[in-house]
Amino acid sequence: MGENNTHDLDGVGVWGGGFTGGLVGGIAMGLVLHLGAGQIELLGALIADSGTAVGVGWTVHMVLSALFGLTFAALVSRRAVQDLVDSFSDYLVVGLVFGALLGLFAGGFLFPLAMQQAGVAALPLPFLPVPGVAGELVSALLFAIGHLVYGLVLGAVFATVNGVVPGGVGEYVPLER
């Protein structure tokens, strides 16, 4: 990662980048989860009846995405992190790591907690056309990919909002510094 920090973060960029990145990343991740395995509907079904599960699932998912985007902003704006992060690709790597850790936290703690609160002992599997253990593995893989997509998009949007763009973009787009 970079040795020289060539950009400054301000409060608007930090919180705006975290919130916007969280929402955009949440949409990208939500599409992976919704279209890949119906996991958004599954999330909503833990809270509401099946008739409104998709809408409730998307609402809860987007609220959590924005909150975790703000959490990312709070972490990545710390001086210790800023001393290491200096380029667009650095933000992508930090976003991927954040997404991976978030996936472990969500899959290992938040989702089981939501299941316990809803009184659900096991997920209604198979909810994929793939039966048994294969369906569970596909579901877990899509869950992991979704969180990596979230982190990647979050890192990219956060960096862009804060004026850190991929190398070479400045040659084609005038950037204010």
Rank of each mutant, 00 (worst) to 15 (best):
V93A: 01
Y150C: 00
V85P: 00
V54W: 05
I145D: 08
V14K: 15
N162Q: 01
A73H: 08
S65K: 07
T20E: 00
L113N: 01
M62E: 11
A140I: 03
V14N: 03
L31M: 12
A121L: 11
H61V: 07
V94C: 02
G132R: 08
L137V: 15
L46N: 12
L67M: 11
V97K: 03
A118D: 11
G167H: 09
G167Q: 05
V173D: 06
A45Y: 09
E171Y: 06
S50E: 15
A140C: 01
L125M: 10
L23S: 02
V153R: 06
V120K: 14
I40R: 08
P131Y: 05
P166M: 08
R79A: 14
V93G: 00
L9E: 13
G146L: 13
D8R: 13
G107F: 05
V56E: 05
E136N: 02
D90V: 00
A156T: 08
V14H: 05
S50W: 09
L104R: 01
G2I: 00
L101V: 07
E41G: 15
A118M: 04
G170P: 02
F158Y: 15
V165L: 14
H147P: 09
V14T: 15
V81F: 14
P112G: 07
L137H: 12
P174G: 01
P112Y: 04
G55L: 14
R78D: 14
